Amino acid sequence: MEKSDHTCLDQYLAAFEESLASRNYKPDTLKNYRYLLRRFGRLLDDEAIAPSALTPDLAVELGRRLPATPQSQIKVPNLARLFVAHLIEIGVATRPPLTPAQAERTELLSNFETYLIRQRGLSPRTIYHVLRFADRFLDHRFGDNMLDLPALNVGDVVAFMEHLLTRKRPFRDKTPATHLRSFCQYLFAMRAAVQKPATVAAG
Rank of each mutant, 00 (worst) to 15 (best):
V130D: 09
V130T: 06
V130H: 12
V130Y: 12
V130C: 13
L131G: 05
R132M: 11
R132F: 04
R132W: 03
R132T: 05
F133M: 05
F133C: 01
A134R: 01
A134S: 09
D135I: 00
D135W: 00
D135N: 11
D135H: 04
R136G: 13
F137L: 08
F137V: 00
L138H: 03
D139Q: 07
H140N: 04
H140I: 00
H140G: 02
H140C: 02
R141D: 01
F142I: 10
F142N: 07
F142H: 11
F142W: 10
G143D: 01
G143Q: 02
G143Y: 04
G143L: 09
D144M: 04
D144N: 04
D144H: 02
N145Y: 02
N145T: 10
N145V: 07
M146Q: 02
L147E: 04
D148K: 07
D148H: 03
L149E: 01
L149H: 01
P150S: 03
A151P: 00
A151M: 03
L152D: 07
N153A: 10
N153D: 09
V154D: 03
V154A: 11
G155A: 09
D156C: 12
D156I: 06
D156G: 08
V157D: 00
V157W: 01
V157L: 09
V158Q: 07
V158M: 03
V158R: 11
V158K: 04
F160P: 04
E162M: 15
H163P: 09
H163R: 15
H163Y: 15
H163I: 08
H163V: 10
H163C: 11
H163F: 15
L165M: 12
L165Q: 12
L165Y: 13
L165T: 08
T166G: 07
T166R: 15
R167W: 05
R167G: 09
K168Q: 15
R169I: 01
R169F: 08
R169V: 07
P170Y: 05
P170N: 08
F171E: 13
R172P: 08
R172K: 11
D173H: 13
K174C: 13
K174T: 14
T175W: 10
P176L: 03
A177Q: 11
A177I: 02
A177V: 07
H179S: 06
H179Y: 15
L180V: 01
L180G: 03
L180D: 02
L180C: 07
R181L: 15
R181P: 10
S182W: 09
F183Q: 01
F183R: 03
F183T: 00
Q185E: 11
Q185C: 08
Q185Y: 05
Y186F: 14
Y186K: 05
Y186G: 05
F188H: 14
A189S: 13
A189E: 13
M190S: 13
M190D: 11
M190Y: 10
M190W: 11
R191K: 12
R191S: 14
R191A: 15
